[in-house]
């Protein structure tokens, strides 16, 4: 099914070999080559993902900023950031901004690989007290979705991530399988979804831990097309 070799592109996810092993199909986006499908149709994958799915979004765009002036700087540029830490704030273009602390925020970009908010901030003049954080290369980014996700993640993380306790837009900066991680509840309409952002050098380790935890629940790896189906985009 593979028709595009991610190894032929200069930007590669640390997980691409694992995706190749299962015959994933890749497409090129603005930010890199991502696995779009792991089976014949995205619809089938989407149905599986309603139960439990894992997808690699490492090459989807991300940006982060920190510093004592970072939040105000972003606000002045039109980014909506509320007062509460560990929350996501939706922008007018459906981008989400994750406020991590009084001095830091993160923008997980879109599946499509384009992200106007990220582009805008990266080209804006940086003030004193605003520093970029190389989130796109410092961290891997996975999404775990489906009804079984809380039960599965409970094997790896000590935070109560059940859907009625950890709501859409909630953020946890915690430890997952003994790695520092950021977990963002970011549903695909009626399907609970949790983005996981962790150390990119440990991406393979984390992926294996997730796969191991998933096996009990019959979860599967899905591509970004299935996520788009779930999102309705």
């Amino acid at each position: 099914m593979t028709d595009l070799d991610p190894a032929m592109h200069i930007r590669r996810s640390p997980i691409y070999r694992k995706l190749l092993e299962i015959g994933a199909c890749f497409v090129e986006t603005e930010s890199g080559v991502v696995a779009t499908r792991t089976s014949e149709t995205a619809t089938i994958e989407a149905e599986q993902a309603r139960h439990l799915g894992l997808s690699d979004l490492t090459l989807c765009p991300r940006a982060g900023y920190k510093g004592w002036a970072a939040i105000d700087w972003a606000r002045e540029l039109g980014i909506i950031i509320g007062e509460q830490n560990n929350r996501t704030y939706s922008q007018s273009d459906s981008t989400r901004v994750v406020r991590l602390s009084d001095n830091e925020f993160l923008i997980p970009g879109e599946l499509s690989g384009s992200s106007p908010a990220i582009d805008m901030l990266s080209s804006a003049r940086r003030l004193e007290g605003v520093y970029s954080v190389p989130r796109a290369d410092n961290n891997c980014r996975f999404v775990i979705c489906g009804n079984q996700t809380p039960a599965m993640v409970a094997k790896l993380c000590g935070v109560d991530l059940r859907v009625h306790r950890f709501h859409e837009g909630n953020v946890a900066q915690t430890s997952v399988a003994r790695l520092n991680a950021i977990i963002i509840r970011s549903d695909f309409r009626d399907v609970p979804a949790y983005e996981l952002i962790a150390d990119i050098a440990s991406a393979g380790y984390m992926w294996n831990c997730l796969m191991d935890a998933m096996s009990e629940f019959g979860g599967c790896i899905v591509g970004t097309s299935a996520l788009c189906v779930l999102k309705g985009t």
């Binding site: 640390p14 094997k155 003994r178 150390d199 050098a201 440990s202 380790y205």
Partner: peptide
């Protein structure tokens, strides 16, 4: 339990 021993790999 299941041992969690993080490993870091170079790209």
């Amino acid at each position: 339990g299941r041992s969690f021993e993080p490993v870091r790999l170079s790209p």
